[in-house]
Design a protein around this nucleic acid. Structure first.
Length: 842
RNA sequence: GCCCCGAUAGCCCAAUGGCAGAGGCAGAGGACUUAAAAUCCUCCCAGUGUGGGUUCGACCCCCACUCGGGGCACCA
């Protein structure tokens, strides 16, 4: 590394005559040196420490999604943390009391898999990686408050996972049930619905199968309506895309439950439909083949054998097979009949896999004329099609296309002549009056399956006692720590490795003292991340998960930053936890993240980076070649933050060039610190204040690339002022360069700090404060107004910015060019938009 | 199949109904230099995916389509 004194320029050729020009020419910006110089200074100053008791500034809680410690930081982390840093550092400069913490989402499968591979303890791998990432974050100059760090695999943290689990259990929100669950044969564990992506395990891409198991669930469906309705608060604050995805995921639908009498069965069967208006068009009934109802209905019908064979066949089908769009309909006639409650029609009952056992009631009325799936089924098995809504389209039994649109009801008794909406209300009233049905809602959202058959997670704090049943581990015994991995076989085998820790598993029942066993499953790691943001303000507190006082001071999170990959899972679960805690009186708000920014991905040559694709760009290489600041700048300047950054489109060397250019300005300033800016040259002062004003606005609306463009403009203007304008001694030059350093501190902290020192100031520039913009300097002396005739520009004139519409119109009409253009024709209409434009309609 | 988002110069992107160009990359020329690099200056380049509509005026609003990206996917 080049050895240079701080801020002192050593000419490359010491014998050369030294003058201002030489210094500028020969000074080289050495980013490696500057990085090494400032890191220890910042360690000392701790500019980002938050939460001093005497702090009276308004708070801002800026949060980056915490990382999983799966190795060193990569390009994606670099982008995410560069963006989060711009926001956190901006609010600090703007005078807010900012908390910007970090921690590690440290439980999970990769650690366990690495441990299996190396035959070691997942703890070791995890804490080693955390140390590596932490060191990289420091070098990357993340503005984190290092006093609040925690890892979710620390017993001091997961103790509170267990505590929260027990609170949910108390409230009936954590429960066990038998059900056909998503099973990943690769990971040998169950998966939440949210972790199954297109039929594959989101982690290992194995084909997910179904397995009947007894598992723990969180009752998130109790909160479906609130999760949906409270999104109104997030409108405009969260990306519309994320809100849309959450709405679709929750998938609320409204319709009606209708009872159908079944011949030879005591109780009627209830079906759910969103189209009760088409009740007269029902020509058969379908029950989910894998439902208990189907199994019951088939008994004694003589088709048991056929049904059994069908059931075997569909169980063998994977989710992938089910997802095929052109999959032909299949099913078995159960040799039984239901009676249509409105017209007494006898409807054959079929069992099929196109009806889901766990949605609605697991049974439907089939209206083939107006539902494509029912129509496909009717065609496959030659069942009748009755049109009850006249839409003007071709008869579905001929076209093969069900008509789902609006129209006039026909063949429907009292509903005849009504449109869809009116028919739905009318039939709902009728059904309710006759005791045959009522309006109902259903959700796509299912309860959250939280138990996992793996080692590296939070042990579920429940003891199973033969006589007392599920007994919570007493609060005083928390944390229930994981048994030592030593001696345990962590290899996936379908049951939890914890089961082999005999001494750990076998305990006395806390209630009756009898021999009992611990629950051997661990919690889904998404439990850990569902509430971690509540803990940062109280991270050193160990007798409570978080302090009420801290929550009231800091929460909710003002700005959350992270990848769109968490649009459903993590964000939905966090919202759910917040609502539960709100109900428990532990937090005084019901949405955890006020504002959300989703950054895009960093890709290379149009596709996601991967070793196998051979397009992996190593963050460490980029940092070494171009420096931290240039990489941060390149990330932020590449385009809007939500867009993907294609690294082949960005120019880190261009960033280096710009930073050098900015840095060089700081060496050119010859006025003294503290000089009165008000006497400075006016046009440069205007440029400075406009840049400050525009950059503020751009940062606040997440257009960081635009903010940087404004700084570039100011740097260009300042260069020009120094070289061929007011000269380096003018106070306006100092004002411009100081503003540049402060604005650059959001994205290029090392360069900014170095500039700040060369300008004669003490660190840290991060705390210098955003200069106050003088509104008078934002108004120009005169502006150019354009005069149009029929929208075409005919003339440009200089006018005072304060000109009124009337004055501008008069000026335009009196202008010789316009007079000549118009000739004898009087203008039909004149639109004036002072001070920028007049349009004359001739 | 349904839903959402996008398309502006060779490339990345600005322009929130009012002059299509802020900024950058790439390219060309020049100044400085013995030369090169670095630096500084100047220049080049599109009429906004296609077709209609609304408006005095449309990249921007509306309708239809093409292409690209994303989400959901037998949820009755």
């Amino acid at each position: 590394m080049a050895c240079r004194g701080s801020g002192v320029q050593i000419p490359l050729a010491p014998h050369m005559n030294k003058n201002v020009n030489d210094e500028r020419e020969h000074a080289a910006y050495d980013f490696a040196y500057v990085q090494e110089k400032w890191l220890p200074v910042w360690d000392q100053l701790q500019p980002f420490k938050s939460g001093r008791a005497d702090d009276v500034r308004e708070k801002k809680y800026v949060l980056d999604m915490f990382p999983y410690p799966s190795g060193d930081l990569h390009m994606g982390h670099a982008e995410a943390y560069a963006l989060g840093d711009v926001i956190a550092r901006y609010w600090i400069q703007k005078g807010f009391n900012v908390m910007h913490p970090i921690g590690w989402d440290a439980f999970g499968l990769p650690a366990e898999n690495a441990a299996i591979k190396r035959n070691s303890d997942p703890r070791i791998w995890t804490y080693e990686n955390i140390a590596v990432q932490k060191a990289s974050m420091r070098r990357f100059a993340c503005s984190f408050d290092w006093d609040r760090v925690f890892n979710t695999c620390d017993p001091e943290y997961y103790k509170w996972n267990q505590w929260l689990f027990l609170k949910l259990h108390e409230r009936g929100l954590a429960y066990r049930k038998d059900s056909a669950v998503n099973w990943c044969p690769g990971c040998q564990t169950v998966l939440a619905n949210e972790q199954v992506v297109a039929g594959l395990c989101e982690r290992c891409d194995s084909t997910v199968t179904k397995k009947k198991l007894n598992q723990w669930y969180f009752k998130i469906t109790d909160y479906a309506d609130r999760l949906l309705d409270d999104m109104a608060q997030l409108e405009g604050q969260w990306p519309e895309k994320v809100l849309m995805m959450q709405r679709n995921w929750i998938g609320r639908s409204s319709g009606a439950n209708v009872s159908f009498v079944i011949e030879g069965r005591k109780d009627p069967v209830t079906i759910y439909t969103t189209r009760p208006d088409t009740l007269y068009g029902a020509t058969f009934m379908v029950v989910a083949a894998d439902s208990e109802l189907a199994a019951e209905l088939v008994v004694g019908t003589g088709v048991e054998k056929e049904f059994g064979a069908y059931l075997e066949k569909i169980k063998a089908d994977s989710d992938i097979d089910r997802l095929a769009t052109d999959r032909p309909k299949s099913g078995v006639f159960l040799n039984r009949f239901a009676i249509n409650p409105v017209n007494g029609a006898q409807l054959p009952i079929w069992a099929s896999d196109y009806v889901l056992a766990d949605y609605g009631t697991g049974a439907i009325m089939a209206v083939p004329a107006h539902d494509q799936r029912d129509l496909d089924f009717a065609k496959a098995f030659n069942l009748p099609v009755v049109v009850v809504v006249e839409t003007g389209e071709e008869d579905p039994s001929v076209s093969g296309v069900a008509t789902g649109g609006d129209g006039k009801l026909i063949n429907s008794g009292a509903l005849n002549g009504l449109n869809k909406a009116d028919a739905i209300s009318a039939i709902n009233v009728q059904l309710e009056n006759d005791g045959l049905g009522k309006s109902a809602r259903n959700y796509r959202l299912r309860d959250w399956l939280v138990s996992r058959q793996r080692y590296w997670g939070t042990p579920i704090p429940i003891i199973h006692c033969p006589s007392c049943g599920e007994v919570p581990v007493p609060e005083a015994q928390l944390p229930l720590t994981l048994p030592d991995a030593e001696g345990l076989d962590l290899k996936p085998k379908g049951t939890s490795p914890l089961g082999a820790a005999t001494e750990w598993v076998n305990v006395e029942c806390p209630k009756c003292g009898a021999a009992a066993k611990r629950d051997t499953d661990t919690m889904d790691t998404f439990v850990d991340s569902s509430w971690y943001y509540l803990r940062y303000p109280s991270s050193t507190v160990h007798d409570q998960p978080f302090l009420k006082k801290d929550i009231e001071t800091w929460l909710p999170v003002d700005q959350y930053v992270g990848g769109v990959t968490h649009a459903i899972l993590h964000l939905l679960y966090s919202r759910f936890f917040t609502k539960v805690l709100n109900d428990m009186g532990m937090v005084n708000f019901n949405e955890p993240f006020t504002r959300l920014l989703n950054q895009g991905m960093v890709v290379m040559d149009g596709s996601a980076m991967s070793k196998s694709r051979g397009n992996l760009v190593r963050l460490s290489d980029e940092l070494e070649h171009h420096g931290v600041d240039a990489i941060r700048l390149s990330m932020v300047f590449a385009g809007p933050p939500e867009d993907d950054v294609d690294w082949s489109d960005v120019s880190p060397s261009g960033s280096v060039k710009f930073l050098t250019r900015a840095w060089r300005l700081s060496g050119d300033v010859t006025s003294a610190p503290g000089v009165d800016f008000s006497t400075g040259e006016l046009s440069l002062r205007r440029a400075t204040h406009k840049a400050l004003n525009d950059a503020s606005f751009a940062v606040e609306s997440f257009r960081f690339n635009v903010a940087i463009a404004r700084v570039m403009e100011l740097v260009n203007a300042t260069r020009k002022a120094i070289d061929s304008g007011c000269g380096p001694a003018d106070p306006a030059v100092r004002e411009a360069v100081e503003a540049t350093a402060i604005m650059l501190s959001l994205v290029a902290p090392f360069t900014a700090e170095e500039m700040w020192e060369r300008l004669g100031h003490k660190p840290a520039v991060a705390l210098a404060g955003w200069p106050v913009v003088d509104p008078q300097l934002l108004v120009a002396d005169s502006v150019e107004a354009v005069i149009q005739i029929n929208g075409k520009i005919k003339e440009r004139i200089d006018v005072p910015p304060t000109i009124t519409d009337g004055e501008l119109e008069a000026l335009a009409l009196a202008h010789p060019t316009i007079v000549a253009e118009l000739g004898a024709n009087a203008p039909k209409k004149v639109i004036a938009r002072a001070p920028k434009l007049v349009n004359i309609v001739a």
